[in-house]
Design a protein around this nucleic acid. Structure first.
Length: 870
RNA sequence: GGGCGGUUAGCUCAGUGGUAGAGCACUUCGUUCACACCGAAGGGGUCACAGGUUCAAAUCCUGUACCGCCCACCA
């Protein structure tokens, strides 16, 4: 007898850190160097250093930890490589906010001091995140941890940039980009979102210069008219036939602008005439290029009117709008104002309305890179899970546009472009290198901009493994096994890694991409700090434990799109932990002093549990292999709680206390628990490790974490034992129900009960589990008895005159009615020649058997009804 | 405007052709020495709606409604 000293409650918060430290001390986070083992590699999505982890992270990282642990048990050499992302815009705005609160600001500090300040923050936030990942139990190889702005990483970035620049894949161009007037930088298309707002549509009159009438245009942004350079109509629009080529006078500015024909305007919309402001609208820009129009820039970096706006110069864009509308009205140019729903573009980061702005930026050509990505996904080299994302991804890749990679920020990889006095750009490792390339011409400055964060995180799967150096890790572990990420960054990040990996290494970066669900609040809203709907995973861990939290989230992870988080569910998971704790504790209390050995003979119920264990292992393994954690958890839960605890342990209690007979159930239970703990370990690493450490086992691994996946002998599978035992359990349940009906409390023995039918020699189980002292074959001689029929076995419980005959009659009639109805439906089907002709034989067989059973049942029920005077 | 998910018991969700399931919650009973973070029994659903295919539909097809997500240059 051992471990009677274990407390009756599992205390996760005190147990979890202990094991994390033990694993780390044992070096288990580093990959097994054994070269005969297959590699399994994950480079985790590096969290942004913008604060602390949220519920989504509490799913994402444990999910990867789970995959690592599972594959380690499957005998692979596992590396889960962690790190952090410098997250340009996001981090810079966090630090800017901090400075503002201190009454300072980046502009005051200057570039160098500002960057120093961000590094201080990087340390602080980075450490927080690291500790949180540890609290979650993540077995990541911290010795290989990378940061997207560390020195080696910077080298990789330089190499790619220079290479692509020299190959013409990176170019500089003047384009209308998405300008964020708050962060004062350009952002890419996918860093914006569309929001429908209630706005106005202004109709404005532009008179012909020669006084021969006017053209009415419609606009949602009247202030941009100051920079209008033309009005366009569709060439087929009859309303403007013969007018194209004439000149209009731009109101307020008194500038002359042409009326031109272009395919862009939709004759159906508004008046069919569109004002053209090339510098402030992507479509207008296209028109401007086609017609070689001027492109005056009307708004500056903060979205204030420039000198181009004449007397409106200096006004904010919205003030200017008000003023201009008023002036247009005063001048008699305003025709009308309609309410109009506008889809404005909003910056993801600042939530500010984007201003389309013509500016000089660096772009990455996608047309040469995208086809390889599409091909890799199309031919299944890289596969998304759930597979619906394959199509979504390809559709997006097929319509990809060039990627604006320059950002007007300080925090990030500074663009390695150096200019000579005449403005010629050289892509170089450093200034000297650039000077070498420039020859006689003198290099005078480096480009001020930095690269889009995703340019560097796109290198993640290989830069973290040492690229551009040809390291062992890179040789053995690229392509990585799986990328686990959130669907919001499929285009932002996954696409870039695919493009970069395929182009630079000639190989896809990962075999699988697993997209996990978004964690929402209990009522289905987005979790967000600013809305106050966020739940702090660390608070949950402190009270209920990391394992319970992991189970909560992982047990809801399959092919679903969303998860609603409820703390109540984590309490359930905590209860499950406690159940596992106590059942194991119970088994240990009854465990033999020496190591258990496999018994010679088994009872049917032993074979039943071993068979259920065997089936459970297969289901769980296949579920892990297909990323269906939901099925993993559900299967393990049912096996442990219902099958092992509620039935097997209860049935075996009597034997367990017997020194001789106890050896068999003890061995069965230890075998089942060991396998169960191993299968559950990837989900609940700490609890399983703690319990494993107490199990008396031969050939025990130093840690469950480093143990092999259970290898169960095939003779465990035993369908015969399963069906025999399950029939007996069904009969037991129906007898218990009869007891409950009589108000007999569970556990209190009744003297006698009777059964008719075949219990396969397992009468003692029924008697024991239904708390019957003497279970006899046949029918009770005395009058009053309650009866029930299950699976062809009828049980009778004598009542000693306690029966309410009316109630029993009513019950029997109701059951007869139900059975008769079911039988009628069944017979109708069986009498249908089409059914007999076309249905599968086993279905017909089963229905016939069911019909026979129903007839017997009705017979028995009718007899019962008669007995009660019906 | 296009695409993708979802709609099943009070709640959260399983269930891809053969007479509806789990956990929680609820009701009743029970502290029998693993566990009250427990055990036993029970109530509760015309599977969003309308058509269709089929011997048979929660399940396959078409359409509709509502919820959510993604993509999209209508001023």
């Amino acid at each position: 007898m051992t471990d009677l000293s274990l407390p009756t409650r599992y205390d996760a918060p005190s147990c979890e850190p202990k094991w994390y430290a033990a694993w780390e001390a044992a070096g288990l986070f580093q990959p097994d160097p054994d070269p005969s083992k297959d590699p399994y590699t994950i480079t985790i999505p590096p969290p942004n250093i913008t604060g602390s982890l949220h519920m989504g992270h509490a799913l994402c990282y444990p999910l990867q930890d789970l995959l690592g642990r599972y594959n380690r048990m499957q005998g692979k050499s596992v590396l889960v490589l962690p790190g952090q992302d410098h997250a340009g815009i996001a981090t810079q705005s966090v630090v800017e906010k901090q400075l503002k609160q201190e009454g300072s600001g980046g502009a005051i500090l200057g570039r160098e001091k500002f960057i120093e300040r961000v590094w201080v923050w990087r340390k602080e936030s980075g450490d927080t995140i690291l500790n949180q990942l540890r609290s979650l139990g993540c077995a990541f190889d911290w010795s290989r941890s990378r940061f997207t702005l560390d020195d080696g990483y910077h080298e990789a970035v330089l190499k790619v940039f220079i290479d692509w620049f020299n190959r013409g894949l990176i170019y500089r161009g003047k384009r209308v980009v998405n300008w964020d007037p708050v962060l004062q930088t350009s952002v890419s298309d996918i860093e914006t979102e569309r929001k429908l707002i209630k706005g106005k549509l202004y109709y404005v009159r532009y008179p012909f210069t020669d006084g021969s009438g006017e053209v009415v245009i419609a606009t949602t942004r009247p202030e941009t008219m100051l920079a209008d350079v033309a009005v366009a109509v569709h060439p087929s629009d009859v309303r403007y036939k013969g007018l194209v080529g004439k000149t209009l006078t731009l109101p307020l500015m008194n500038r002359e602008i042409p009326l031109i024909a272009d395919s862009y305007p939709d004759p159906e919309f508004g008046s069919g005439a569109v004002k053209i402001t090339p510098a402030h609208d992507p479509n207008d820009y296209e028109v401007g290029v086609r017609h070689s129009l001027d492109m005056p820039v009307l708004l500056d970096a903060r979205a204030k009117i420039t000198a181009e706006g004449g007397k409106y110069a200096g006004l904010d864009r919205y003030e200017a709008r008000k003023q201009i509308v008023a002036d247009l009205e005063a001048g008699g140019f305003l025709v009308k104002i309609d309410d109009h729903e506008i889809a404005v573009l909003v910056s993801d980061r600042s939530k500010e309305v984007i201003e389309p702005l013509l500016s000089e930026q660096w772009f990455c050509k996608q047309s040469a890179l995208a086809p390889k990505v599409i091909e890799a996904v199309n031919n299944g080299e890289t596969q998304f899970f759930p597979d619906r994302y394959n199509g979504v991804f390809i559709a997006w890749m097929e319509n990809i546009r060039d990627w604006c990679i320059s950002r007007q920020l300080w925090w990030g990889h500074r663009i390695p472009i150096y200019y000579t006095e005449d403005g010629t750009p050289y892509a170089a490792l450093n200034r000297d290198d650039a000077q070498g390339q420039a020859g006689d011409k003198k290099i005078v400055r480096q480009d001020d901009d930095v690269l889009d964060t995703w340019f560097s995180s796109g290198l993640w799967p290989f830069a973290t493994l040492g690229w551009p150096e040809q390291t062992d890790d890179l040789a053995h572990r690229y392509p990585t096994s799986v990328l686990v990420t959130d669907r919001n960054i499929i285009n932002l990040w996954v696409a870039r890694m695919m493009m970069m990996g395929l182009d630079l290494l000639g190989k896809k970066p990962f075999d699988d991409v697993m997209i996990y669900a978004t964690v929402l609040t209990e009522d289905g809203r987005r979790m967000s700090k600013s809305l106050g709907t966020g739940v702090d995973p660390m608070k949950i861990i402190e009270t209920l434990g990391a394992d319970a939290l992991r189970y909560t989230l992982l047990s809801q992870t399959g092919a679903n799109q969303d998860i609603r988080y409820s703390e109540r569910r984590t309490e359930d998971a905590r209860n499950f932990c406690n159940k596992i704790w106590n059942a194991t504790r119970f088994v240990l209390m009854n465990a033999p002093d020496g190591l258990p050995t496999q018994p010679e003979t088994f009872e049917v119920v032993d074979r039943w549990l071993l068979s259920r264990l065997h089936a459970t292992e297969k289901t769980v393994r296949e579920a892990y292999d297909s990323y269906d954690m939901q099925l993993v958890c559900q299967t393990l839960y049912k096996f442990f709680w219902s099958e092992m605890c509620d039935w097997y342990i209860e049935v075996s209690k009597a034997r367990l206390t017997d020194p001789a007979a106890g050896k068999t159930p003890q061995w069965v239970l230890l075998t089942a628990i060991e396998a169960f703990l191993k299968m559950l370990h990837p989900v609940m690493p700490h609890l399983t490790e703690e319990l494993y450490s107490h199990l008396p086992l031969p050939n025990k691994a130093p840690f469950i974490m480093s143990a092999d996946w259970p290898n169960l002998p095939s003779w465990f599978a035993n369908e015969g034992a399963e069906s025999r035992v399950e029939l007996v359990f069904d009969v037991t349940r129906s007898l218990r129900a009869l007891r409950a009906e009589l108000g007999l409390t569970p556990g209190k023995a009744v003297a006698a009960a009777y059964y008719e039918g075949d219990l396969g020699g397992l009468e003692s189980i029924v008697a024991g589990q239904a708390w019957v002292t003497d279970l006899k074959p046949g029918r009770p001689a005395e009058q009053g008895a309650l009866s029930a029929t299950t699976g062809g076995v009828e049980v009778h419980l004598p009542t000693e005159g306690l029966i309410d005959a009316d109630k029993e009659r009513a019950k029997a009639s109701a059951e007869i009615e139900k059975a008769t109805g079911d039988l009628a439906k069944l017979e109708e089907r069986l009498n249908n020649p089409m059914f007999v002709d076309r249905a599968k034989p086993e279905v017909i067989e089963r229905d016939r058997a069911l019909a026979t059973e129903l007839r017997e049942r009705i017979e028995k029920l009718s007899a019962r009804l008669k007995q009660f005077g019906g």
